[in-house]
């Protein structure tokens, strides 16, 4: 009987897996400890770059979350990132309040914006959804420059307020971003085991079976997009805080493309090491690429086409002559 065969393999298999899990946990713990102690050794520019890297890692996670739990690709997540960043800047300029207030507000705004976008487009998927998100990314610079009174136009805004008074700016940026990144990774690993997380994975792998279990496709689409946009907005708030500035330069059409490439580079994983790889990629590569001058848009364009086509390989089959039924 197949079951008794399994029973033999089970104990060894599961304990081996537990061993791997423990080793993985331990190495992540060591990584966090090392990052937490780093400011004792390093200073200035490295800490600044790392805090940006942490913030970017959060943004990459928001895109990866959409890919993993929604099976969807967004080119326009820079829209939600910008929303969070500008929320921090505008709250400081208009109300004089720090990220203690604007960070939760950014998450809320991101969730609302995500919902408002996702609800009407809940029947779109694959390449069609990707194109719809592209509209967001394209509209973004116009909005930022158009609402100059609030956004500071081309120049952007500075973010000067500290979260914790009395601690140096560099250390604050670094630790706030690091703590937030670790907390988000923990929350995401809890989410994987939650009823909602399981439901979303099922809806993606077996949409019709999931429907028959009470998980509607529109619920799945709207929820994952809302969550992912909220996380993107949180990431944006951190980007603003870590770089002390927001301007339309940081949120061009290509930053959305770049987030997607960063997510692919991190293999769409939702772990801390993967997020750091994606974050480092986004933080470092554009500065190197800047030297490529005129080639930059072309490189981005090619990356966009490759990533979108690869992610939508399944959808593209739809265009082949033999059509599937409903």
């Amino acid at each position: 009987m197949a079951v008794s065969e399994l029973a033999h393999g089970t104990k060894a298999g599961v304990s081996a897996r537990n061993g791997n899990v423990d080793a993985a946990r331990l190495s992540i713990f060591a990584l966090v400890a090392a990052l937490a102690l780093l400011p004792l050794l390093a200073g200035g520019f490295l800490l600044y770059s790392l805090s940006l890297c942490f913030a970017n890692a959060l943004a990459v996670l928001s895109v990866s979350m959409l890919v993993r739990y929604g099976g969807e690709v967004s080119i326009g997540h820079s829209f939600f990132v910008a929303l969070g960043a500008y929320a921090v800047a505008i709250v400081e300029h208009r109300l004089g309040l720090s990220i203690a207030v604007s960070l939760p507000l950014a998450v809320l705004l991101g969730a609302i914006a995500g919902f408002v976008f996702a609800f009407p487009s809940r029947r779109l998927s694959g390449i069609y959804l990707a194109v719809a998100t592209m509209a967001l990314a394209l509209a973004l610079p116009e909005i930022l420059i158009g609402f100059e009174k609030f956004t500071g136009g081309f120049e952007g805004l500075y973010i000067a307020q500290d979260l914790i008074p009395g601690i140096s700016k560099a250390l604050q940026r670094y630790y706030v971003a690091l703590v937030l990144l670790v907390v988000v990774c923990l929350a995401l690993s809890h989410f994987r085991k939650s009823a909602q997380g399981l439901a979303l994975l099922m809806a993606q792998a077996q949409p019709r079976a999931a429907e028959a279990m009470g998980i509607t496709r529109s619920w799945a689409r709207v929820s994952i997009f809302t969550l992912s946009a909220a996380l993107a907005s949180l990431a944006g708030a951190m980007t603003g805080f870590a770089s002390s500035t927001v301007s339309p330069n940081s949120f061009t059409f290509f930053s959305g493309v770049f987030l997607l490439v960063g997510s692919v580079v991190s293999l769409n994983r939702l772990s801390l090491p993967a997020a750091l790889v994606g974050g480092a990629f986004i933080t470092l590569v554009p500065t190197y690429l800047a030297k490529a001058g005129d080639w930059v848009p072309i490189l981005y364009g090619v990356a966009l086409i490759v990533v979108t086509l690869a992610a939508n390989a399944g959808d593209l089959r739809r265009f082949l002559p033999r059509r599937r039924g409903r």
């Binding site: 939650s194 009823a195 439901a199 994975l201 099922m202 792998a205 077996q206 019709r208 279990m213 998980i215």
Partner: peptide, 23 residues
């Protein structure tokens, strides 16, 4: 067989209880 490959067998069965979720 409509199983989600990413989930364990137990988790695949847990999804069947989605409608009972309160949290």
């Amino acid at each position: 067989l409509a199983m989600c490959p990413e989930l364990s067998l137990l988790e695949n069965v847990l999804v069947g209880l989605t409608l009972k979720r309160r949290s």
